[in-house]
Design a binder for these strands. Structure first.
Lengths: 347, 347
DNA sequence: CGGCGGATTGGCAGCGCTGCCAATCCTTGT
DNA sequence: ACAAGGATTGGCAGCGCTGCCAATCCGCCG
């Protein structure tokens, strides 16, 4: 280990020091362009009619003055804002940045801006953040999952703001719902493992009380096993968010505690990757000695020496779809994007 | 592969259908509480003085009416907004969600909201997004790196909005700069490899024209090699963003083209992980046959069967520090958070 | 018991922009 | 040449909330 500390350089010269002259307003532009305020407004929004000459004058004035429209004022004066609030539980698990990515790309194309908030998987925080976001009078809100505090639901309903709930369709939504069935994903995973001949199947998961979608997969998985006349051969829950580390240490703990496991279903790919690393380090042959199955279909799983058996979820698409529906003010609906089982080589 | 499509369920019952009554305003609350508007405003912001009895009346009225303050109006009426714009190049590379995480956590604690924008490593897009964000009159802007279009710089300076530039300190900043020296990181990496006895060192990177920080590391790396009397034994650039995939296929290509390489410096950990996977798949002993060195210090690198040799960067801290400085309206400054070289076991 | 100074309150003018409406200007058609 | 009718424009009242200032209240001192 080596610690590097660079020298502190003197503060850069900045315009910050310049006299804070009064910001340029629409009225200034109007005066400069010798036209009325409403005309400037029309030109800037390309809304309504005006002559080419007027447009040129206004644009020249805007450039000369360095005018930047004030959307705060614009939003207050008109009706809806061009803001969409996005509430996600975490930024650590790559699925949420993926969701954000899909959403921001789509919103950006429609001229909307995203305001984000992170709940850390805490429904009380979610409620507070939703309340806070609503005070910006957003055109819509994107939240994760279908489970919310009663207070959160009440606020959402009362606000009249459009809401899209993402990444889960197992339950009742409030308005727009975009995702896939986590329960069905769990079932499909179990059936796949059973179909491949595994019988001593264990589960390795993270904190399911906070991650309701992982809990639904778990339920579906167990249900499908039961249909096949099987039960879990073992189970380990790490009381923390999912991580590669939890997967690695968790698998070690699971195997130390439970004998004869021939396959492990992980709560997601991060956990599974950790498990795979454990197998590599411990010299456990995959999948002969132990089969691994994940969830999410991350790139990293596809690129492991042996591609990870997993389920690929359309998270980017979910974000994009939700953004599109919200910005188009589409009617309430449930969009099932489905998922895809990737057989891989670890099971 | 198996494709699952769940059934389309009927749209959920929603309050969306309810009559869109006029939203509750401050004036409504004032009337309901039988006090003046300014009094309600003071109570809600706990600003100024008012009696306990008044507070109770107002709070009761707020609860009864389900009033949600309109921050758009509040911001317009007062001066600064409680919004901070965050401009990042990507959400795919985990370092940016990490940065976001640090920033949103700190901002949230100060009652600020984050508006995000993603440039896809395109400086023209950055300029457009900065312009767009500025129209929300944010209290501050967080951008990535020190290199921007002249237009971006002009807009930023002209706006008078506080700006924090993150993740790099090799160059001149506009206002607040929080990060570490990428160049020094590259140098430290080279010196480490040289110190460990490697002499035939190659570089495997991604698109450096867009990722200026990676380019600085590359420059520092080469410079330090030169000081040791060495040059790159080989080099491969994938003309795309960094990814595990690019690292894996890139390393294969690099080794096919260049003989005798004993160590590879990757543009970051994602690339290095891909390279490690290639080694595992190809049966190349690490580090005996080939040493690997990354950049970023991702968790996944620490958990590989052999911990990745890399440099851990304080990205979450950078986000948090920038957020704190901006929300405190601190003076312009350069904060060097340094970095830490992690020797690992792959080099 | 009158007066004083701090504690509470209410009134109201904007913040900068948009929506609506009336006023003007130009084109055509006849 | 004249009027109808569309194309352009400008004026101005808010949007909902905050900041400033004047008006009221109250408790306590002399």
């Amino acid at each position: 280990m080596e610690d590097h500390e660079g020298p502190q350089r003197p503060a850069a010269l900045t315009a910050r020091d310049a006299a804070p002259r009064r910001p340029v307003t629409l009225a200034d532009v109007a005066r400069e362009a010798r036209v009325g305020e409403s005309t400037v407004s029309r030109v800037l929004r390309s809304h309504g009619s005006f002559s080419a000459r007027t447009r040129a004058q206004v644009e020249a004035a805007v450039a000369r003055l360095g005018y930047v429209p004030n959307r705060i004022a614009g939003t207050l004066a008109s009706t809806g804002s061009r803001l969409i609030g996005i509430v996600i539980p975490s930024l650590t698990n790559i699925v949420f940045p993926d969701l954000l990515r899909g959403a921001t790309a789509a919103l950006d194309a429609e001229g909307f801006q995203s305001v984000i908030a992170v709940t850390d998987y805490d429904q009380d925080r979610e409620e507070a953040l939703v309340a806070s976001l609503l005070s910006w009078r957003p055109a819509g809100l994107i939240v994760t999952g279908l489970e919310h505090n009663p207070g959160t639901v009440r606020r959402l309903m009362a606000s009249g703001v459009r809401v899209a709930e993402l990444l889960d369709i197992d339950g009742r939504g409030l308005d727009i719902v975009v995702g896939y069935s986590n329960r069905a994903a769990g079932e499909a995973s179990a059936r796949h493992l059973v179909g491949r001949g595994y019988r001593r199947i264990a589960y390795l998961g993270h904190d399911l009380t906070r991650d309701r979608r992982a809990a639904k997969r778990y339920d579906g998985f167990r249900a499908a096993l039961a249909e096949a006349g099987l039960g879990l051969a073992g189970e380990e829950r790490i009381p923390a968010p999912s991580s590669v580390e939890a997967g690695r240490s968790g698998l070690a703990a699971l195997l130390a505690r439970t004998r004869g496991v021939d396959a492990v279903y992980f709560s997601n790919d991060d956990m599974a990757l950790g498990g795979y690393f454990h197998c590599l380090a411990a010299g456990l042959a995959v999948p002969d000695r132990l089969a691994l199955f994940g969830y999410n279909g991350l790139d990293v799983g596809r690129l492991m020496p042996q591609p990870l058996a997993t389920i690929r979820t359309p998270r980017v698409e979910a974000g994009a779809t939700a953004a599109r529906l919200l910005s188009a003010d589409a009617p309430a609906t449930v969009v099932d994007l489905g998922f895809e089982l990737i057989a891989g080589a670890t099971a």
